[in-house]
Simulated scan of single mutants.
Amino acid sequence: MGCKQTKVIPFKQTSAEEALTGKINCPHELYYAKFQRRSGLLCPRRGGVVPRGKAPRRLEQIPVRCFYTAERRRQKADLFRLDRLVEQVQRKQLDREIKHKAVKDEKKRRQFLKKMRAEHQLQMREEKLKKVEEERAAKRKKPVTK
Score class of each variant (00 low, 15 high):
Gly2Trp: 02
Cys3Leu: 10
Gln5Cys: 07
Gln5Trp: 04
Ile9Lys: 09
Ile9Pro: 00
Pro10Trp: 04
Phe11His: 07
Gln13Thr: 09
Thr14Ser: 03
Ser15Met: 02
Glu17Gly: 10
Glu18Ala: 07
Thr21Met: 12
Thr21Arg: 12
Ile24Glu: 01
Pro27Lys: 10
Leu30Ala: 06
Tyr31Ala: 13
Ala33Tyr: 00
Arg37Ala: 09
Arg38Asp: 11
Arg38Gly: 02
Ser39Asn: 09
Gly40Lys: 08
Leu41Met: 06
Leu42Trp: 01
Pro44Glu: 15
Arg45Leu: 15
Pro51Cys: 15
Arg52Trp: 07
Pro56Phe: 08
Arg57Cys: 03
Arg57Ala: 13
Glu60Lys: 09
Gln61Trp: 04
Ile62His: 04
Val64Glu: 14
Arg65Asp: 05
Cys66Asp: 11
Thr69Arg: 05
Thr69Leu: 11
Glu71Ile: 05
Lys76Val: 06
Asp78Met: 13
Leu79Val: 05
Arg81Lys: 15
Leu82Gln: 08
Asp83His: 10
Asp83Tyr: 02
Arg84Asn: 13
Arg84Thr: 14
Glu87Leu: 07
Gln90Lys: 14
Lys92Ile: 05
Gln93Pro: 03
Arg96Ala: 14
Glu97Pro: 00
Ile98Val: 14
Lys99Ile: 08
Lys99Cys: 06
Ala102Ser: 10
Asp105Ile: 02
Arg109Val: 00
Arg110Trp: 00
Gln111Val: 03
Lys114Glu: 10
Met116Asp: 07
Arg117Glu: 07
Arg117Thr: 09
Glu119Arg: 01
Leu122Thr: 11
Met124His: 00
Arg125Met: 02
Glu127Thr: 08
Val132Asn: 04
Val132Asp: 04
Glu133Val: 02
Arg136Thr: 09
Ala137Gln: 08
Ala137His: 06
Ala138Tyr: 07
Lys141Leu: 15
Lys141Asp: 14
Val144Ser: 12
Thr145Tyr: 11
Lys146Met: 05
